[in-house]
Deep mutational scan, measured.
Amino acid sequence: MEVVDPQQLGMFTEGELMSVGMDTFIHRIDSTEVIYQPRRKRAKLIGKYLMGDLLGEGSYGKVKEVLDSETLCRRAVKILKKKKLRRIPNGEANVKKEIQLLRRLRHKNVIQLVDVLYNEEKQKMYMVMEYCVCGMQEMLDSVPEKRFPVCQAHGYFCQLIDGLEYLHSQGIVHKDIKPGNLLLTTGGTLKISDLGVAEALHPFAADDTCRTSQGSPAFQPPEIANGLDTFSGFKVDIWSAGVTLYNITTGLYPFEGDNIYKLFENIGKGSYAIPGDCGPPLSDLLKGMLEYEPAKRFSIRQIRQHSWFRKKHPPAEAPVPIPPSPDTKDRWRSMTVVPYLEDLHGADEDEDLFDIEDDIIYTQDFTVPGQVPEEEASHNGQRRGLPKAVCMNGTEAAQLSTKSRAEGRAPNPARKACSASSKIRRLSACKQQ
């Protein structure tokens, strides 16, 4: 084909351009004929944790799935940006308080904090938690009735009371019990989460009196709706648990309003109706937990002794299953770290194939690490110290990083047969305790 000078094309009309061969290198194709290559998922490591896909996002930050490269346990990490926390009232204080509380709590029905990582340079905090497959609110939203069968609701409620009793025994008032803060594992274990607005009572406090509340409006008791200066913290949790039980068994809320002012007005009056299909035992329990006067409201001991709580409820309806993943529609909620794991395991070791967030990740503290002497050669063979940054567990980050890069360049065919977990650990520049 004859090559045409581009400067001469402006002298031709459209018809003349076609005659000189423009149609031979300008093609129009339908979008259905285009085959897009999927974007390669680059592996990203935060300390010893391999990052997966997004699980959810809230006002405080994002939650992603991660894999512990040492234990191969599935975890969830809450990623918090200090810049964003400053824009939220009491944001930083709530996060630090939640970390302090979770560090000393150990119960099967309370979410466990596994690790805390802090990135000084990017001003990011990573709260590594045990993995929960789904939230209770997500399960309720997945069915038209917006409720659980009585047998399933009873099982979840009993676990909620177990976890709540443990928190109260530790002198902690949750203040925000609701389905949105109750998570579930694949085995059906309920976990109380989000202790950001919780309050730890003084060890020598005479009672459970509280003065502040930041919980969700629909789950607040009349004493808070009416603006009382002080109130019983434990009875606030009992009320919120009662509203939660009402919601998961009926699909409704005892109090509603077009806006928060109308909602608080209705809560302050204390008038509500219980659907007739709840039955006398459940209705009596709800009335005891939603008692207007805090002094007359049920205690956890009274809830445990109630006939509806103690009764064994046979399954009359099919239980609400864990819904498919909202993004991938995966009904099994498979591990989202698998594509990243395959990338590390299947590809040659190259620095361009993975990302390490930083050479140094500070753990379990908000301060910069200490310094240790770096050896410097002298005339008599002895070495003197220069400062060298280290990880919180004493690992020399720069030395590990250099060693990792040197190993990656060394030709050794046997290394390709290593397991995925050992490869992740070798790529991680800074081991965590």
Rank of each mutant, 00 (worst) to 15 (best):
residue 182 L to W: 01
residue 83 K to Y: 07
residue 412 N to A: 13
residue 387 P to W: 15
residue 353 L to S: 15
residue 81 K to L: 07
residue 409 R to S: 06
residue 102 L to M: 04
residue 316 A to S: 04
residue 63 V to S: 09
residue 36 Y to G: 13
residue 265 E to V: 11
residue 427 L to T: 14
residue 70 E to V: 09
residue 142 S to R: 04
residue 120 E to P: 11
residue 145 E to C: 11
residue 194 D to C: 00
residue 240 S to C: 11
residue 44 K to T: 04
residue 55 L to I: 11
residue 209 T to N: 13
residue 71 T to G: 12
residue 398 A to R: 11
residue 73 C to Y: 02
residue 59 S to Q: 15
residue 181 N to F: 00
residue 198 A to S: 02
residue 421 S to L: 15
residue 45 L to S: 10
residue 432 Q to L: 13
residue 70 E to G: 03
residue 189 T to R: 11
residue 112 Q to L: 07
residue 422 S to L: 08
residue 65 E to N: 06
residue 375 E to S: 11
residue 356 I to G: 12
residue 110 V to C: 05
residue 156 Y to V: 06
residue 98 E to Q: 01
residue 329 K to W: 03
residue 263 L to M: 05
residue 113 L to E: 07
residue 421 S to Y: 15
residue 85 L to S: 09
residue 123 Q to C: 10
residue 126 Y to C: 02
residue 163 G to V: 01
residue 131 Y to Q: 00
residue 400 L to I: 13
residue 423 K to I: 09
residue 244 T to M: 11
residue 281 P to Q: 13
residue 327 D to A: 09
residue 121 E to A: 04
residue 131 Y to A: 03
residue 398 A to L: 08
residue 110 V to T: 13
residue 335 M to Q: 06
residue 141 D to W: 03
residue 370 G to F: 12
residue 39 R to Q: 01
residue 306 H to Y: 01
residue 191 K to I: 08
residue 416 K to D: 15
residue 348 D to Q: 13
residue 210 C to S: 05
residue 422 S to Q: 14
residue 384 R to Q: 15
residue 268 G to H: 07
residue 326 P to M: 12
residue 401 S to V: 11
residue 61 G to E: 01
residue 82 K to H: 07
residue 381 G to D: 14
residue 340 Y to C: 15
residue 134 C to G: 03
residue 100 Q to Y: 01
residue 262 K to M: 08
residue 284 D to V: 03
residue 68 D to R: 06
residue 74 R to L: 11
residue 248 I to S: 04
residue 407 E to C: 08
residue 392 M to F: 08
residue 247 N to Q: 08
residue 63 V to M: 04
residue 283 S to Y: 03
residue 151 C to K: 15
residue 396 E to Q: 08
residue 4 V to R: 10
residue 367 T to W: 11
residue 418 C to S: 13
residue 230 T to N: 08
residue 226 N to G: 09
residue 370 G to V: 03
residue 305 Q to E: 06
residue 41 K to A: 09
residue 34 V to F: 05
residue 414 A to R: 14
residue 23 D to G: 13
residue 212 T to L: 06
residue 308 W to L: 00
residue 373 P to L: 07
residue 174 H to N: 01
residue 114 V to R: 02
residue 61 G to M: 01
residue 61 G to S: 05
residue 150 V to A: 01
residue 58 G to F: 00
residue 310 R to H: 12
residue 250 T to C: 08
residue 373 P to V: 04
residue 95 V to P: 15
residue 100 Q to H: 09
residue 404 S to K: 14
residue 74 R to A: 01
residue 302 Q to R: 13
residue 188 G to A: 05
residue 149 P to A: 08
residue 89 P to D: 01
residue 140 L to D: 00
residue 276 G to E: 14
residue 369 P to K: 11
residue 375 E to K: 14
residue 129 M to W: 03
residue 250 T to H: 15
residue 66 V to A: 11
residue 44 K to S: 11
residue 414 A to F: 11
residue 226 N to P: 03
residue 346 G to T: 15
residue 156 Y to M: 15
residue 262 K to Y: 09
residue 72 L to S: 03
residue 265 E to W: 14
residue 426 R to C: 07
residue 28 R to W: 08
residue 351 E to C: 06
residue 401 S to H: 12
residue 96 K to V: 03
residue 263 L to V: 04
residue 393 N to A: 14
residue 13 T to P: 14
residue 368 V to E: 11
residue 292 Y to S: 09
residue 322 I to Y: 05
residue 90 N to K: 00
residue 108 K to P: 10
residue 349 E to Y: 05
residue 404 S to G: 14
residue 329 K to E: 10
residue 164 L to W: 01
residue 36 Y to S: 02
residue 31 S to D: 09
residue 236 V to F: 08
residue 34 V to D: 03
residue 151 C to E: 04
